[in-house]
Structure formats: C-alpha cells, structure tokens
C-alpha cells in the first residue's frame, strides 16, 4: 500500500499532474497580467492548455543536419529534471520528511533545463540555435555564481544544514542579509526562467527564439510545459528556502498561495518594465553587482552570527 500511495503522491497529488496544471495556470497568470499591463485583454483561462494540446497534435520536424537523437532527448531531459524537482518540493510538506542533501539535488536539477536547452540548440545544427545555445551557456555561468552564494548564505544561517525540511522551518526575510539574498535569487530566477530582461538566449527579434528555432510539435510543447513548470517550481523553491516553506493545512495553505502570487507578480513586473539586456551586460550584472551584493550579504550574516545581532 505504501508504494501505491507513494505512486499516487508522485503522479497525481501533489506530484506531476497537479504541478503541471498549476504550472500552466501560472503561465496563464503571467500572460494575463502582462496583457493587462499592456492595455490588452489577454488569453482565456484555458489558453495554455489549448496551446499544449495543439502542439501535441502537430507534426514533428527533425532537422537534417545535427544529431537527431540528442535533438529528441534534450527536451525530455529538461522536462524530467524539472518534474523531479517539483515532486521533491511538493512532496516534502505532505509527508513531512526530507533526506540530507536534497537541497543540493534540487539546485543541481534546476540547472538541467538550461543544459537541456543548450543540448537541444546545439543538436539542431542551426546557426541561430547555436548562437542561442552559446548565449545560454554564458548566462548559466553568469547567474549560477550569485545564486549559489545566496543559497550558501541560507545554509550558513541554518547552521550548515542542507536538507529542505530544516531550511523551510524558518523565514529568512526578517534579516537584512536574507532580504538581499532573496532579491539576488529573484533576479537569478528571472534569468533561469528566460524572462525579460534576461531572455537573451531566446531573443525573438535578434536570433528568432534561438535554441527553439528548429523545434516543432510535441517536442516544442515539452519545452513549453518545462517552462511553465519552472514558473511554478522556482517560486516554490524560493518560498521553501527563504520564506518559511509550505504547509498543507488550514490557513497555511492560503498563506502559501499569497506568497506564491507575490513572487509571481514580482517576476511579471520585472519582466514587463525592462528591455532585454545584452549577454555581456548580463555577465557584468551578475558577476559584478549581484556577486558583490551576495558577498556583502554573506559578510553581514557572518557578522550578525558572531556578534549576535539578530536583524543582520
């Protein structure tokens, strides 16, 4: 029975299916709010589902040049990895356990969708896709550094515990260093999602969606689902690590929804009030501004810990 229950947890609730549905709904929220900010009407509620269904019914065109095997495999890698992250994050509050080091697993798996994009782009044999893939590599190099420093800060504050159960028990937003690292992670999440101002890899008006250029039909829909899953998973990850985690009972659930919506709206607002930056500017921004800020936050945290100043 235990295995069956675990299966239900993983596949239906709060696992795969639930997450996909919430993810697609979040992408609807993104599109709707974007539209309203731009004085447009926006799509109906079920539009993301229609899109996926439509793409599933379309023909898959495989490029003649390039590696077909990797071309097909790439979207699946990204999809599977982000699904695992989603299940880990959502299952933890439900069964109230986690294993040591699941934070590291999650952080690793969160890079995989970007790697999948690089592999897919490189495998398609299109010069524009190659351009996009190389941009994505640079972007990963750029944002991973401040991202990891910010995560390390939280780990330090939690007393070097690297399981999500411990991290989710406390909210770090009461301290200055916590807020700074939250902002840095928010910006990194923007880059991870491939949203403006960091949609450099798939810039439509520069390199025509870059790595996605040769993808069509079901494979493209897998990429789209991966993106909307990330739109759900990354904020949930932020809530788990920074903002007191998720509880599935009573008012806590509502509190979780509010937190999620706040982060989602922040992401959408950043997306809609910025132009796209260039890759070298993104690199400068993450390695310069963000990394320095993250290190300052770390120093503040260390000072706070040593001298017992709670608000640092």
């Amino acid at each position: 029975m235990d295995i069956l229950l675990t299966g239900v947890y993983v596949v239906f609730f709060p696992g795969f299916f639930t997450v996909v549905i919430i993810g697609l709904l979040s992408s609807w929220v993104d599109r709707k709010v974007t539209a309203r900010v731009q004085y447009r009407k926006g799509p109906p509620l079920l539009q993301p589902f229609y899109d996926v269904v439509k793409l599933l019914g379309k023909e898959t065109i495989l490029p003649k040049q390039g590696s077909r095997f990797m071309f097909i495999l790439a979207p699946l890698i990204g999809f599977v990895s982000i699904s695992i992250v989603a299940v880990i994050l959502m299952l933890r509050p439900l069964v109230a356990t986690s294993f040591v080091g699941d934070l590291i697993v999650v952080v690793y798996l969160l890079t995989l969708p970007s790697l999948a994009l690089i592999i897919g782009g490189a495998a398609s044999g299109n010069p524009l896709a190659a351009q996009g893939a190389s941009r994505e590599i640079k972007l990963i190099l750029a944002y991973e550094l401040p991202f990891l420093i910010a995560i390390a800060l939280i780990v330090y504050k939690a007393g070097f515990k690297i399981d999500l159960q411990t991290l989710s028990a406390t909210s770090e937003l009461g301290t200055v260093s916590g807020i700074i690292s939250f902002i840095i992670v928010l910006l990194c999440v923007q880059a991870k999602l491939g949203f403006v101002p960091f949609d450099i890899a798939e810039a439509e008006t520069e390199i025509m969606s870059g790595p996605y250029i040769e993808y069509s039909g079901p494979l493209l829909s897998v990429f789209k689902i991966t993106q909307s899953l990330m739109l759900f998973t990354l904020p949930v990850f932020m809530i788990t690590v920074f903002w007191g985690g998720i509880q599935f009972h009573g008012w806590e659930l509502l509190w979780f929804v509010i937190k999620y919506v706040v982060i989602l709206v922040l992401i959408i607002v950043i997306k809609n009030t910025n132009p796209r930056v260039r890759i070298d500017q993104a690199l400068k921004f993450f390695w310069g501004f963000c990394t320095v800020l993250a290190i300052i936050a770390f120093v503040l945290a260390v000072i706070g810990n040593t001298y017992g100043i709670a608000w640092l």
Partner: peptide
C-alpha cells in the same frame, strides 16, 4: 524599437 529591445510593454503602450 521597444519591441526590438524586448520591451514589449512600451511597444503596446
């Protein structure tokens, strides 16, 4: 120009 810079909000406004 806004659209080319990825600034679709300005484009629509």
């Amino acid at each position: 120009a806004g659209h080319f810079l990825g600034y679709n909000t300005v484009y629509m406004w």
